[in-house]
C-alpha cells in the first residue's frame, strides 16, 4: 500500500524528518507515537502534500506510484485521506457544498458515476448519524464555529463519504473527551475492512484502547527509532518517551 524510504523533509528551513522508513500493507493499522516536535504531524502533511513542506530526500511509493510526484488533489483522489489535527474553518462555504464537491471529484477520478442528490443526501445523513453530529451541521459553513470535538467528527464524516484507501489520522484524539473519542474510534473501526489501511498519529496511548493497531512505531528526531506491537504503546504510556530518546542518543 505505502512504502516510505529514507524520507527527509524540511519546513521553514528546519529539517524535521531525517531518514524515515515505513512500510504499510493493505488492511493494516499502524500507530505512530512520539514526543512533541518529533515530526509526527509533519509526516501526515508531507504525505498529503501541504505547500511549504519540502521533501529533500527519499521516496514514497503509494500503490506502486510515486506519491510525491502527485498534486495534493490527485493524492486525495487516489485515496489518500488526511484527517487534520486542526481542521480549517471556511465561512461562507456550506459543509454540504464542500462534501458534494469533494465526493464528486474523488468519484469522478475513480471513474464512478456522480451520486445523485438523493443518494448523496442519504449517505451524508448516515455519516452524520455515525459521527453523532446533528444533520443541520451540513448546512453550516465548513467547521465554522464548530467545537474542537465537532470538527474532528466532521473529519470523520468526510472520511466515511470519500471512502479512501489510506487514512492518515493526525492527532485525531487530542482535545477529545472520552465520549467523543469513542464515537470517532467506532467510526474508524467501522471503516476497517481488511483492505483499507490506517496510520494513527498520536501522542497518547488512550486512542489505541479503542482502535487496536497492528504495529506501533516511535518517531523521534525525525526517524522511526523503534517498532513493535501494541505492547510498545503500553510501555510508552508507563515509561514516557525520555528513556527511548536517551537510548537513541
Amino acid at each position: 500500500m505505502l512504502k516510505i524510504q529514507n524520507l527527509h523533509a524540511r519546513v521553514e528551513g528546519k529539517d524535521i524528518l531525517r531518514g524515515l522508513d515505513l512500510q504499510i500493507g493493505p488492511g493494516e493499522v499502524h500507530a505512530i507515537m512520539g514526543p512533541n516536535g518529533s515530526g509526527k504531524s509533519t509526516l501526515g502533511h508531507v504525505l498529503a502534500g501541504r505547500p511549504g513542506y519540502e521533501v529533500t530526500d527519499g521516496s514514497v511509493t503509494y500503490r506502486g506510484e510515486d506519491l510525491l510526484a502527485m498534486d495534493t488533489e490527485e493524492r486525495a483522489r487516489s485515496g489518500v485521506f488526511l484527517a487534520f489535527q486542526y481542521p480549517v474553518e471556511i465561512p461562507g462555504v456550506s459543509n454540504m457544498e464542500f462534501l458534494k464537491a469533494s465526493v464528486d471529484a474523488v468519484r469522478e477520478s475513480r471513474g464512478d458515476a456522480a451520486l445523485d442528490a438523493v443518494t448523496f443526501m442519504k449517505r451524508a445523513r448516515e455519516a452524520c448519524k455515525a459521527a453523532d453530529l446533528p444533520v443541520d451541521f451540513l448546512k453550516r459553513g465548513v467547521n465554522e464555529g464548530f467545537s474542537g470535538g465537532e470538527k474532528k467528527r466532521n473529519e470523520l464524516i468526510q472520511m466515511m463519504l470519500l471512502e479512501p484507501s489510506l487514512c492518515l489520522l493526525d492527532e485525531t484524539d487530542s482535545g477529545l473527551d472520552i465520549d467523543a473519542l469513542q464515537v470517532v474510534a467506532k467510526g474508524v473501526n467501522s471503516l476497517r475492512d481488511g483492505k483499507r489501511s490506517f496510520v494513527l498519529v498520536t501522542h497518547y496511548q488512550r486512542l489505541l484502547n479503542y482502535i487496536e493497531p497492528d504495529h506501533v512505531h516511535v518517531l523521534a528526531g525525525g526517524r522511526i527509532v523503534r517498532s513493535g506491537d501494541k505492547s510498545l504503546a503500553l510501555d510508552l504510556e508507563e515509561r514516557g518517551y525520555a528513556w527511548l530518546e536517551d537510548e537513541v542518543a
Binding site: G49, P51, T72, R77, I90, A101
Partner: peptide
Amino acid sequence: LALHYLRTRGVSR
C-alpha cells in the same frame, strides 16, 4: 490553508 484543505479532499485548485 483553506485552499489546501479543499485540495486534500480532492477538489481541484
